[in-house]
Amino acid sequence: MGFKLLSKLLVYLTASIMAIASPLAFSVDSSGEYPTVSEIPVGEVRLYQIADGVWSHIATQSFDGAVYPSNGLIVRDGDELLLIDTAWGAKNTAALLAEIEKQIGLPVTRAVSTHFHDDRVGGVDVLRAAGVATYASPSTRRLAEVEGNEIPTHSLEGLSSSGDAVRFGPVELFYPGAAHSTDNLIVYVPSASVLYGGCAIYELSRTSAGNVADADLAEWPTSIERIQQHYPEAQFVIPGHGLPGGLDLLKHTTNVVKAHTNRSVVE
């Protein structure tokens, strides 16, 4: 069995187990497998329904001669939608809004960016022009300005110390501490036991640490421990890039980060 097929099978099995364990909360999309990078042309966006009122959005972007996937989250909030992270750029984010209108038909009224990198804030200006209120932590807003990236308009308070959590509509926002970046936030959907790890969490097929220019490698494993301790009931975990899975993604990420750190020390 090929690795790609095995990865998709694991996603399907995880979703099936969740649907059985929580039949009222989960209505997993039966329309197909989780979209992969090879299936999404740059400039297009796919939506994948995880649970009743919960979707991931998947886009792709060219970077350094390669094409990478990027995940975000959409959560229903009454007759409105909360968006977590842009679709990595203005063109993708405009396509995301169009796809949401086509498939869901509810307005996106608020959006949260989970850290300051372009795959999370690139497209904020498109959201703002569409009347979406954009939010991020003060740290993310400051770092985005320093980096020359787009800056969300509103500040999220109460997320300055490791372990801080605040309720934001249908989700809980959690600051686990520094990891992929010093400002990275985690998003949890309690009604569906869905954990969105953003770039602080890796997919299972990833074996290298990737972009760690703004990471705190020493603190990252401790931050992941905080996530595990705060959300032990999480059933569906979405990484910032690639295929979702279960809580095993947290341990896998820790292993990859520690291996990278150990290699760096040896070198």
Rank of each mutant, 00 (worst) to 15 (best):
D216F: 04
S16P: 12
T109P: 06
G122V: 07
I227A: 04
S113D: 03
V265S: 12
G32I: 07
E233I: 10
P138N: 09
K102Q: 10
A15M: 10
A130R: 14
I201E: 02
G122R: 07
W220C: 05
G245C: 05
N71Y: 04
H230R: 15
A200N: 01
S38H: 10
N211V: 07
Y188S: 02
A94K: 13
G197Q: 01
Y68H: 08
I84E: 00
A209C: 04
L106M: 14
Y34V: 11
R128F: 10
G53S: 11
A94W: 11
I58R: 07
L83P: 00
A213V: 14
S38E: 10
I104S: 00
G32M: 07
V187G: 02
L249H: 05
A98G: 12
A90R: 10
H154R: 10
L243F: 12
A130Y: 13
F174C: 01
D77Q: 03
Y68A: 08
V37K: 13
D125S: 10
A25P: 13
V75G: 02
D77R: 03
M1K: 06
F236V: 10
Y135M: 03
D77L: 02
E267K: 12
L204G: 14
V112P: 04
E157L: 11
D164E: 10
T182S: 11
L82A: 02
L6K: 15
Q229K: 14
H154A: 09
G43Q: 05
Y231H: 05
L5F: 14
V11I: 14
L195E: 00
G43V: 05
Y202A: 13
A133D: 13
Y202K: 06
D118Y: 07
N184V: 01
Q228S: 15
V212E: 04
A144T: 10
I104E: 00
V108N: 02
A179R: 03
S162E: 14
G169Q: 05
L6C: 15
G148H: 11
A136P: 05
Y175T: 01
S62C: 06
D248P: 08
W220A: 01
I104Y: 00
N262A: 12
H260Y: 09
L13H: 12
G169V: 05
S208N: 15
P107M: 09
L204Q: 11
L6Y: 14
G246Q: 11
L9V: 14
F3K: 15
S162W: 09
T182R: 13
I100Q: 00
T14S: 09
L247P: 14
F63D: 04
P232N: 09
L106P: 06
G122N: 14
S139W: 11
S223C: 03
M18S: 15
Q228M: 14
L156I: 09
P41N: 11
E33W: 09
V75R: 03
H252P: 05
P69F: 09
V189S: 03
Y202G: 05
V42K: 10
D125R: 08
H154K: 09
A165M: 14
T36P: 13
S181R: 01
T14C: 10
G2D: 15
D248G: 12
G72E: 03
E101Q: 14
E225M: 11
G131H: 08
V171F: 00
A98L: 13
Q229I: 10
L173V: 12
R263H: 10
L247S: 15
G245M: 02
K102C: 07
V212I: 09
P152G: 02
L159C: 05
A111E: 13
I224F: 04
F116S: 06
L204Y: 10
P176R: 01
E219A: 13
I84P: 00
N92G: 07
E80C: 05
L247E: 09
K102P: 07
T134M: 05
A192Y: 07
D79T: 09
A59L: 04
S160C: 06
E219D: 08
G89N: 01
L217A: 05
V257K: 02
G240Y: 06
E145G: 13
F168L: 09
F174R: 02
F174D: 01
V189I: 10
Q228K: 15
H57D: 04
I20D: 14
E145A: 13
A25S: 13
L195R: 00
L5N: 15
D52S: 11
E33I: 09
